[in-house]
Design a protein around this nucleic acid. Structure first.
Lengths: 343, 343
DNA sequence: GGTCGCGATGTGTACGTTCACATCGGCGAC
DNA sequence: GTCGCCGATGTGAACGTACACATCGCGACC
């Protein structure tokens, strides 16, 4: 391809730059720069000429050069785990949209395990992208460690955390969500309620567990040790097979919809009716949960909303604005057909 | 913040650059550059000194400066739709991992609708990021148009497409997958088989439909017009309610697992047994499908594999290597309990 | 009517890196 | 012993943009 025999050929096709535009428009490059950054003091007629030149050449600003000179990467980093799950995926999608609209790009990195090394290497990667802000959607217990270890010098928020480190977290009120789910079961007369939790190192799993335990405590009901799961339907299934051997409970609050699904599968296989014999509540309200067998009573949380808020919060902080709405997003109980009065 | 009254303050904290490292290590900046790009001709002892200086200062190469001078952004663009779905999400995750390992970052953009304008604006955004390669996971019928319109001058692949535009597509053999699903139903004695398809503008929906129709044709069975859905469980549910009023079929091949789930919900609601009265096959093998009621017979496709292959293919192309493995990934029929011999 | 102010535009420089080329010392071949 | 080559390192550019400052013309104010 390179062995062209026409030496007159100028050179490799180079993307037009700001000076090319300036030449075509008959102005200085600085004027073009002003147009690009929509400076107020440009004569309308000049503006017009420059715009035409830009279109004619198909000019696009070079982001790298911009980033270099302004030392602003216009990149938001996202540290994520479990991105194939509905919740994180939905949040990320909202984040992407909000960021793009604000002129920011995203740099996403997935961490595969919740080990410190994995988190650290993920953060390390993000820092090498010179991100301006950070959003964490991951098992967060060790993330805070890593963030301080690495001296992340940028604003950050963690999604879906507890209120513990309030400044940096933005959350659906998981505790509240767990409470309304549990209360619903209690109001239906259930006294022996089991909880299948998410992994211990996910703060929201912890929060849901807390909410569950507190609500039980408030109702003076016996609490039993929650089962620590891994968010998957398979875990719910096998946990169900195991737990249902004793049947010393009549209701289950699952840490998410998938585990609830698996649990219902186990019930079916053991000939137990949901909600006839066992009531079950999930968490998240994934779109499919309305079509489970039976349709699942669950707690809806607005994943997209917290994604958007995260971006708004960070951009505000970058602009030096005062802090914004830190109120937790309120979750909502969606009652379907997997819960019934205690038999 | 800027009105500090200590003029002695040097300046704002500036990230260390290559010259700072050079100074500390007692070498020239070019030597540091060589270390960073692991040039072969460096004395081990010099290498050592430079490495120490890098660690000491916590130096990180400035990607923007790199991109500027090399005019290589080391970014792969991903144009995606429906990223909350299992398939795309899984592929993207694999892409991200593979890209990162190869030293590339990802720029993902979600398109919300399959309208030309939306696709174009997504591509436009990606081009403004000066991506080096492009991966498309989206309704592709109009994407090709947009790609040629915008003169995307970079290598690209579309995931999960048909073999139509073979050079640029990488795919699970959707036609084959649909055929084995359909054949399975035929072998069970079903002769009246319904197909609920994905949206018309998704090429894989089209491919699955083709596979379905061809297999039916080969078996000399009556073909009926597929129903055009939108991938959601809700669509499957409402389509089921509608279609089952006539019950002139005994089996359904759904374009994905979610629609199959919704359809089974409709069956249940109408008092029909799956697989007793109606057999149903899905597509994708989402992790939950093993726990549906009943566990779903479906076609597994390896989303992660095609994600990885896409990256490998593009990186190969960028390096000017010869084309790689274009063979479609073979899908696999997973037989569970939603299909049975025709009653 | 001269100067001040301001709107509109142009000129120099810096950002941090890599590439091309220059330099320098030492070692082997004749 | 000297020439040439090569390994190891250093110097000068250039990438494309935004910021700081300079310049120019024009109307208004006294």
């Amino acid at each position: 391809m390179t062995d062209t025999e026409r030496p007159a050929e100028p050179e490799r096709v180079r993307a037009p730059n700001i000076r090319d535009v300036a030449r075509v428009a008959g102005v200085s490059y600085q004027t073009v720069s002003r147009v690009l950054n929509d400076s107020p003091s440009i004569r309308p007629e000049t503006l017009q000429r420059v715009r035409e030149a830009i279109d004619e050449l198909g000019y696009r600003p070079n982001q790298a050069a911009r980033a270099l000179v302004t030392s602003r990467s216009r990149t938001i980093g996202v540290l994520a785990a479990q991105t194939v799950h509905y919740g994180p995926a939905t949040s990320i999608q909202a984040i992407e949209t909000a960021a793009r609209e604000a002129g920011y790009r995203l740099s996403i990195t997935n961490i595969s395990s919740s080990e410190y090394a994995s988190i650290k290497s993920g953060l390390d990667y993000l820092m090498s992208q010179s991100i301006e802000a950070l959003i964490v959607i991951a098992p967060q217990v060790r993330v805070f460690e890593a963030i301080s270890d690495l001296q992340i010098g940028v604003p950050f928020v963690t999604l879906e955390a507890t209120g513990l480190s309030s400044d940096h977290s933005l959350w659906v009120d998981q505790v509240q969500g767990a409470r309304i789910a549990t209360r619903h079961l209690i109001e239906l007369g259930h006294t022996e309620i089991m909880h299948i939790s998410g992994p211990q190192d996910w703060i929201e799993a912890e929060a849901r567990m807390q909410g569950f335990l507190r609500e039980l405590g408030d109702a003076d009901l016996r609490t039993r040790a929650p089962i620590l799961g891994d968010w998957t339907a398979s875990f719910g299934y096998y946990a169900g097979l195991e737990l249902l051997r004793y049947q010393d409970f009549t209701a289950v609050f699952a840490g998410n919809d998938q585990m609830a699904l698996g649990f219902m599968h186990a019930c079916r296989e053991l000939g137990l009716s949901v909600p006839g014999d066992i009531s079950i509540v999930g968490f998240d309200d994934v779109p499919e949960s309305a079509h489970y067998a039976p349709p699942l009573t669950t707690v809806r949380q607005n994943f997209a909303e917290i994604g958007r808020r995260a971006v708004a919060l960070l951009l505000g902080e970058l602009r030096g604005e005062v802090e914004m709405n830190h109120d937790p997003v309120q979750p909502e109980l969606i009652i379907r057909q997997s819960t019934a009065r205690r038999p």
